[in-house]
Design a protein around this nucleic acid. Structure first.
Length: 822
RNA sequence: GCGGAAUUGGCGAAAUUGGCAGACGCGCUAGACUUAGGAUCUAGUGGAGAAAUCCGUGGGGGUUCAAGUCCCCCAUUCCGCACCA
């Protein structure tokens, strides 16, 4: 005998679609809940078990909320622009648009087979002009406010993808996030979004949202705010100045040299001619190193002198200027004041090149004359610091900044690790940047009336390091909107993270034509109440979306400060220890399980495997368990056809009025309901399912002894508890017991009867010297004396106490009785 | 190097405030029903032992009447950050 899942599942999916059960009425804003999963990238690899592991439980949570009476909006769409489609085109000659559309059609079919309550009327894809028009609009809005700008900067270049990457897209081992090729540095003029303007707010906002602590920490570290001072050093025989950022202005008297990053433009201007050759050589060497080699903490320090000296603003000392790759151009000012005595890196460098190490902060318990074995980075008392000697370094830290300010040689400064978001990509399959470059007028925005600036279909994809659009004459040549002279369009396209940084707004009405999105709907439906997706986006998508949301708020489009109120990361499903990916060839296709077991069983199995946020290595070993459970329940419920029609089912029962067998059943159902409600609320599907299985085992013989009204009542509760976890199954069973309407059309979630949670008898564990010697049933809330009296007759206990002295007795009501004997 | 999370039967995993370790499921064993069983049902199932009992939550110490849970040290795995001045 098998559970006829194929008929049942297609029947209900058809029913949901025909009756628009899953279409949310967004005009009803009472008890509204926007429940979102990260939309899908439509690659050729199609849907794998990892996607199911994300989407199915997210849907179960949403369905649970719907049954509880929330008006839930659950959309799905396609993050359809991006490099893989273009790389595929280079390999096969199939146009990205064509392959993407084919993939979307396949993936849509697969998504529908999960049976999620996606509102398909709101489906969207980012690669159509109706969508990316608004990326361009957003770009122009940012541009008008100076938040989109172009600059020449050393950028991360992936030679295999033939494009630049944002910092966030470079993995920590210096490889490309997409293709794992080694990323190199290149100087290019690129478009940036000024996310740094929002650094402080992005940091502060983290305290207001319910996100995993780990993700918030990652964002905090990524933003990397640090407090300190900017100090200006004059350069001997030059009008140039060196600005440095330091978090330790208190060590200023201990500066014995200054270091510039090799790429710093100042290097050429300050270096003495006789040192130029050595510097040029050093720079060449530095360029060859990968980011990871260069920044490795174990690498030995290298560097070359410039022959020029800087002047310490507080004591007028001449200090040599060096060039070293341990200083990064992209952090702070690209220049560092070196204090070898109090900084580990400077200490190491000074030791190697025999530079002076001067102690200016004395560690308590040490003498000024003691030789430093390592840099002392803690706080202490000032020494060798002129009139400030004897001061506590912590006090001096504040005082010195005031002094610097007074002599115009520095000021307080907050510095960020976060850098502006580089959004240009030298690729085809993305949103064209709506800028025209005119010889006379410079960067001229494409007028709003001309949006969307459409991506042409006919282009050459061969990666040349230049955007494919550059070679499309028809696209690239245009007139300047300002002066009319011949001009060229920007040939780059936008990072696809621009698309995903606001898509949750667009979902509310993807066909909206009067603006980027319907702000009225947005006001009622955003921020997103529950957002579920992978943790790998912690410092990319999830940071960009917060930034864009705040920007949209600032231009009056959104009312809230944050896009995603609650965030949950599902765990990663690996296969043979590795993340599933087409290139590794370890993708597990869910389709075969759907064919063999059906969608509900597969979904339940995924949820039953373990905690949602944990993930784990793929195995289908236990799927028989959920399969058997569903079959058993189906067979069981089939015995009670139309029971709700034949019996008059009351809304509630008074437990005291029930017979003993009925009481037990009633209690078990409510205890399970209590447990399942809490577990589902917290996305602990595994324990919710376990509780359901436990209940099914317990009902057993007693169920048939119950009056028919109670039987119907119990079945109703049971099916509604199953509905979020196995929606097709529940719909079918709901119909079997005689319900006319879909359970999701008329949602029900039952209320726990508190009276049913109270047991009148409890099992007390009895210990002697902490070792379990027996358990005895006792009436609820029995006193210590009552339990003690009952224990006299328990042989397994008295055996261990008789003839011994009782030292102590501990009784925890309704739980445990521990006798300590000697 | 720094930071975080984890480590529980043969396997996936449960376990309020410290209070009966192993719920639930897989697998396994035995039985039932069957022409058959890779279907289904029933019972058993952490290890050792005939039993009483003893031992068991990565390892070692500690606190406590009582520790998977709290404290200290160590190991392994995964993740994040990695010269951030």
């Amino acid at each position: 005998m098998r559970y006829p899942f194929a008929e049942i599942e297609s029947k209900w999916q058809q029913y949901w679609e025909d009756n628009k059960i899953n279409c949310t009425d967004l005009s009803k804003t009472e008890k509204q809940l926007y429940s979102l999963v990260m939309f899908i990238y439509p690659s050729g690899a199609k849907l794998h078990c990892g996607h199911w592991y994300n989407y199915a439980p997210a849907d179960s949570w949403s369905r649970f909320k719907r049954l509880q009476g929330y008006n839930v909006f659950e959309p799905m769409g396609y993050d359809a622009f991006g490099l893989p489609a273009e790389n595929y085109a280079i390999k096969t000659g199939i146009h990205p648009k064509d392959s993407t559309m084919t993939n979307i059609a396949d993936i849509r079919r697969q998504l529908k087979s999960i049976g999620c309550m996606y509102d398909w009327d709101k489906e969207l894809m980012t690669c159509v002009p109706e969508y990316y028009k608004w990326n361009q609009w957003l770009f122009l809005q940012l541009f008008e406010r100076g938040l989109a700008y172009r600059k020449n900067a050393p950028v991360n270049w992936c030679d295999s993808c033939q494009t630049v990457l944002a910092n966030e897209q470079v993995a920590s081992d210096g490889t490309c996030e997409r293709c794992s090729n080694l990323v190199i540095q290149k100087n290019l003029t690129q478009w940036f979004f000024k996310i740094t303007d929002y650094a402080d707010e992005l940091l502060a906002g983290l305290d207001t949202i319910k996100w995993p602590e780990k993700t918030k920490t990652m964002q905090r570290n990524w933003i990397g705010r640090s407090y300190g001072a900017e100090v200006v050093f004059d350069i001997e025989d030059s009008d140039e100045k060196i600005k440095v950022f330091t978090t330790r202005p208190d060590t200023l008297y201990g500066v014995t040299y200054v270091v510039l990053a090799p790429e710093h433009t100042l290097v050429d201007r300050v270096a003495k001619p006789e040192f130029a050759a050595a510097i040029a050589g050093y720079r060449e060497e530095a360029k060859k190193l990968t980011e990871i080699e260069r920044t490795s903490t174990v690498k030995e320090k290298t560097g070359v002198p410039t022959g020029t000296y800087a002047v310490n603003p507080v004591n007028g000392e001449r200090i040599p200027i060096w060039v070293s790759d341990y200083v990064l151009l992209t952090y702070g000012t690209g220049c560092v004041m070196a204090v070898p005595a109090h900084d580990e890196r400077d200490f190491e460098f000074a030791k190697k090149f025999n530079l002076e190490i001067r102690k200016v902060i004395l560690e308590s318990g040490t003498n000024e004359s003691d030789e430093l074995q390592a840099a002392f980075t803690g706080a202490g008392t000032m020494v060798n610091s002129a009139e400030h000697n004897g001061m506590l370094s912590l006090d001096f830290k504040l005082a010195i900044v005031e002094k610097l300010q007074a002599i115009s040689a520095g000021q307080k400064k907050v510095n960020y690790r976060l850098r502006d978001w580089l959004i240009s990509r030298q690729r085809y399959w993305g949103t064209p940047i709506p800028i025209i470059h005119c010889q006379k007028c410079g960067e001229v925005p494409v007028p709003y009336s001309q949006l969307p600036l459409e991506l042409p279909y006919d282009v050459e994809f061969k990666p040349t390091g230049e955007s494919p659009l550059a070679s499309n004459e028809k696209f690239i040549n245009t007139g300047c909107p300002k002066c009319g002279a011949p001009a060229k369009r920007d040939a780059d396209t936008m990072d696809t993270f621009v698309d995903s940084s606001w898509y949750y707004f667009r979902f509310l009405n993807p066909r909206f034509e009067d603006g980027m999105f319907d702000t009225k709907l947005a006001e009622a439906w955003t921020p997103v109440g529950m957002y579920i997706g992978g943790a790998e986006h912690a410092t990319m998508h999830l940071l960009y979306a917060r930034f864009i949301h705040k920007f949209l708020r600032d231009i009056g489009m959104a009312k809230s400060d944050e896009p995603f109120r609650t965030l949950v990361h599902q765990g990663t499903i690996t296969n043979a220890g590795a993340k599933m990916s087409k290139s590794r060839g370890n993708v597990v296709n869910p389709d075969e399980f759907i064919v063999k077991h059906g969608s509900d069983v597969f979904r339940m199995y995924l949820m039953f495997m373990g905690p949602f946020e944990m993930g784990g290595d793929w195995s289908d070993k236990g799927i028989a368990g959920t399969d058997r459970f569903i079959l058993r329940m189906y067979e069981f419920i089939k015995n009670y056809e139309n029971i709700t029609k034949t019996a008059i089912v009351p809304d509630s029962f008074v437990i005291t009025a029930l017979a003993d067998e009925e009481k037990a059943v009633y209690r078990e159902v409510h205890q399970t309901l209590h447990k399942v409600t809490i577990e589902l609320e917290n996305l602990r599907f595994n324990t919710a399912i376990a509780a359901m299985m436990e209940l099914s085992g317990k009902l057993g013989k007693r169920f048939v002894q119950c009056r028919v009204e109670l039987q119907a009542y119990v079945l109703q509760i049971f099916i509604s508890m199953m509905a979020p976890l196995a929606p097709h199954f529940a719909e079918e069973c709901w119909q079997i017991i005689g319900k006319e309407k879909s359970i999701f059309a008329e949602p029900v979630w039952y209320t726990v009867d508190a009276a049913a949670l109270i047991e009148d008898e409890v099992m007390i564990a009895v210990q002697v010297n902490g070792k379990l010697r027996g358990t005895i049933p006792m009436p609820l809330d029995s006193t210590q004396d009552e339990v003690k009296a009952a224990l006299q007759n328990v042989e397994s206990v008295t055996r261990h106490t008789s003839g011994k002295t009782v030292v102590k007795e501990i009784y925890v009501k309704n739980k445990i009785y521990n006798i300590v004997v000697k």
